[in-house]
Each structure stands twice: as structure tokens, then as C-alpha cells.
Design a protein around this nucleic acid. Structure first.
Lengths: 251, 251
DNA sequence: CGCCGTATTGACAATCCTCAAGTAAGGTGG
DNA sequence: CCACCTTACTTGAGGATTGTCAATACGGCG
């Protein structure tokens, strides 16, 4: 909630986007690249804790996270909060607002973050002129759905320890795929409150569960970040095979 | 698990689809209708309990539920099952298989059901020639995502009683929107085991929770079906505003 | 220095699960 | 028509998991 004024400026042209250099993202044709570059209206730079989209808002924008971390969440009226998923660089958010009309979840920055900004009203042009990119938008929506499915399985049917192991392994793997593991050690920029709100647990029980993982030397927790020590064992505890993703589109 | 051989036959042409007569579905242009009709490859008729898609399968098909009820679910290796969402007439399923390659969830019929069958390989044609319909596919994916979000909030942060009230009200409202409330009384064709696997609860606790709702005269439970008696109170117990949907596309 | 956000721990209570046993309704074969 | 399945729903008792309350520790920062 330490948001300052967000800044929108046009900076990096898509042709020079650092994300596109990663193998993880599929190659775009020059025409596609040019189209996306024109589709992009600017960049939104926000502080840690800033709310990028809020539940109930009638947003006219779509965002792709360019750098940093963020998360999507919903709240009940009495304040109980559920984190739905996390956003890493390359992730698209705000489709719901653009398609249904009103946002039904909020988005908050977990770290200082930069988003590419698109206009909802340009979407029909994209669908008319770039069927390949249109398919990519659907692809991304379908991918989000898949992550939500796995999350639902986790919260509904895994124990607290399994859930925590799953979440951390999941975020770790996603961080690796977008190149956060090059050289420096990966650490997840989350607090135990975030973990609790993701797993549907109380903060006290979350703490005890994470301590258990730490005492088994699977993770290390320090300040507001979590470091993965033994990925393999985390996967084993979670009973999860890990992400199976090939290359994906980037819009 | 009482599946018999599924039957695929071409029956109803889309122009005569009974679902399209409902106000709930947006009007299609004659060209769109013609395209969808050509897109449809046949119908799949299955018994109650039949598995339509299964986790891990490499399905080449997409389905729109034409009549009946079904549900999507995932399982852990030890058998714990989580129901992700329910399918009502008009709902599209199988996009994941068509987009990512492999199904990551299963689909089972809750009642005798009929699906319209589409071929995954035809999807690019749809995106190229019918941008409006392509947008509709994304619309439907986004709608599914919205339902999953709300589900996640429910399982993660609502109490057992709230969850149960939410689920029943949710299914009831969806049933109404697809015209199941005309004249005859709506009843949901589910067992308490389904409710348990949807809410992430044990069957025993589910039963006690449902009995509580029944004792307050909010629902009536009989055999394998649940009847809604007091929708308003269910919404109040759930702390939920109800569905806010305008017209939607039907593919 | 003192405040604030975050993590940690213990004690106790509520929720939810498992085990076990039973009832009720419907189908099937003798 | 009845005996005997099977499926689904119920209920009680006791135990495990998870939540709440309360207190403490620790570091960053004005």
C-alpha cells in the first residue's frame, strides 16, 4: 500500500525487449513484432506494494509484466484475502477487464515493477489482423487456467506441508524459466503473509509449516524472501512433477 | 465409471441449436453460424459417469456441452480428487489439450450428456477467418478463469458452511441461466461426494455441513440431487453477490 | 531511540478428518 | 415377491490439523 504515482512512458521498443532474447519465448515474425510494438501504448512503472488493477474497476488496459513480480488476488468483504496467482515477466494480465468489462480481481506489485501497457480497444484490431497473435492471447489465457487448476488441486486436496512445498517449487521453477537463475541465486520476494494468503492458511500455521521445510533444509527464509535449497525434495514433498512447458508466446 | 461406448454422430445443425434460442447466448451472424456449423464435426453422446477426456491424454478434440451436466477434475497420485468446475450446456472444454498439447485434467459426465465435437486442427482456420469467433473463444477461456478465481477464493478463504452455500448457489444460478428453471423445479444432479471433492472437504464433514443448510431450510437433499429452497439466504450465508453475466457467446 | 513490519513460539480452541456403524432406496436374480 | 446387492446418505466418537490469541524477537528506518 506504499503506492506512489504510477508513471506511464514509452521506453523499450518490443524489437529490443530483453525478454524476447530468452529461449523460453517463441520467436515472432518481423510483422508480428512490429504489430505488437505498435500495440504497446507505453510503460507503467510502479513501486513495491502498488495496486495496478483493482477489483470492481472498469479498466481499459491490458498489461504485460516486463520486469519484477506481482500477484493477483481477490478479497471477501470482511478482509479475508486469497492470492490467485503470481505474475512473472512476460505474463499478461487484465484480459478479464478487457473482455468481461469489469475486473473481478486486483493486482499488486510484489517488487518494483514495470508493465507494458496495451489498450483494450485495440484488441479487435489484433484479432482481425493478427490471427497468430490472437491465438497467442488465447494460449496465455489457457495457460493461466492450467495454473489455476493446479492451484485449486493444491488448496483443496494437499496438506499444509505439501501445499507450501508445491508453491515454493512452482514459483522457483517459474523464476528459472524467465532467466532469474543466471549466475545469482534465485530468491522469491514474498512474505509469509503472501504464502498464507496463497495457501489458504493462517499466518501462524504457515510459519510453522515453513519452519518445517527449513529444518529439513529444503528452503531458507530470510526477511521478505525465500531461497530454495533442495528443489528435488520440494517436488517430492509436494508430490508434483514440476512444470512441463515448452516455449510460449510473449505479447 | 459405468461408461459404455461413446457414440459420435452428426445430428443437430447449429442453425437449429436449441441453446441459441436462449437470450443468454449472443446472436451470431448468419456467416458465423454457417462457419460454426461447418466447424462442428459431430456429436458425442455419453452415459452418466462416462469419462469424456482424461488427464494425460493427447486429445485432438474440443467439445461444447450440448445437453446434460459434466465436471472437470484433477487427481493426485494417491487418489485424492479435486473437482475444478462444472460444465453446463454451452460450455466449451478441451481448449488446453488443443493449445498446450496434453490434457491436464479429466472430464466426466454427471448425467447422460451430449457434446458437440470440434477438431483441434480446425482452430487455426477459425482464428484466420473468423476473428469474432476467435475472440469468443478467448472470451470463454476468460470466463472459465473468472469462475476458477472465485472457486479458489471459496476454497482458500471461506468456511465449510460458506463454501457449500456458495457452491450450491453458484450451480443453481448457472442452471437457471441456461434455461433449466422453466416450469420445472431446478435440481442439481450431484452427490455429496461431488460436493466434498469440489469444496476440498471430507465426505463426512460435507454431509454435516449440508445437513446444517437443510435444517435451516435453504436446500433439500434427496438421492443424488440437491434442490435449492432459499437462494437469497444461500447467497447471504456465502457472502456472495451472485453471478453478474450479460450475454455470452456459444461456439 | 522508538516505531513498524516481519518472523517466531507456546498454549489452547475450533474446525475438520478418520473410523466405524448404521439407515434408506433402488436394482437384480431366484 | 422377496433376499440380497450396491450406492448414497447419516451419525457419533475420538483424533489430527489448523486457527486464534498473546507474547517475543529482530532489523530497518526516521
Amino acid at each position: 500500500m506504499t503506492a506512489t504515482q504510477p508513471q506511464i512512458n514509452r521506453r523499450i521498443p518490443c524489437e529490443l525487449c530483453p525478454l524476447r532474447r530468452l529461449d523460453y519465448f517463441r520467436d515472432f515474425t518481423p510483422e508480428e513484432l512490429k504489430f505488437v510494438s505498435g500495440f504497446k501504448r507505453g510503460e507503467l512503472v510502479v513501486d513495491q506494494g502498488a495496486m495496478v488493477l483493482s477489483e470492481g474497476a472498469h479498466s481499459a488496459q491490458l498489461f504485460t509484466l516486463l520486469s519484477g513480480w506481482a500477484f493477483r488476488y481477490k478479497s471477501l468483504e470482511d478482509g479475508r484475502r486469497q492470492i490467485l496467482n503470481y505474475l512473472l515477466p512476460g505474463d499478461l494480465v487484465g484480459l478479464q477487464g478487457s473482455i468481461i468489462g469489469e475486473m473481478e480481481h486486483s493486482v499488486e506489485a510484489l517488487t518494483p515493477a514495470t508493465f507494458c501497457v496495451f489498450q483494450r480497444e485495440d484488441l479487435p484490431v489484433l484479432y482481425r489482423e493478427q490471427p497468430g497473435l490472437a491465438f497467442d492471447v488465447t494460449w496465455l489465457a489457457s495457460r493461466e487456467e492450467r495454473m489455476l487448476d493446479e492451484n485449486l488441486l493444491s488448496i483443496g486436496r494437499r496438506s499444509a506441508l505439501e501445499r507450501a512445498a508445491y508453491l515454493i517449487a512452482f514459483l522457483y521453477q517459474r523464476a528459472i524459466t524467465v532467466g532469474m537463475g543466471n549466475g545469482k541465486r534465485v530468491s522469491l520476494p514474498i512474505t509469509q503473509q503472501h504464502v498464507a494468503d496463497t495457501l489458504g492458511l493462517s499466518i501462524v500455521h504457515t510459519n510453522k509449516t515453513l519452519r518445517k521445510l527449513a529444518s529439513r533444509d529444503l528452503i531458507r527464509w530470510q526477511g521478505r524472501s525465500c531461497e530454495v535449497v533442495d528443489e528435488k525434495e520440494l517436488l517430492a514433498v509436494a508430490g508434483w512433477d514440476g512444470l512441463v512447458e515448452g516455449r510460449r508466446p510473449l505479447i
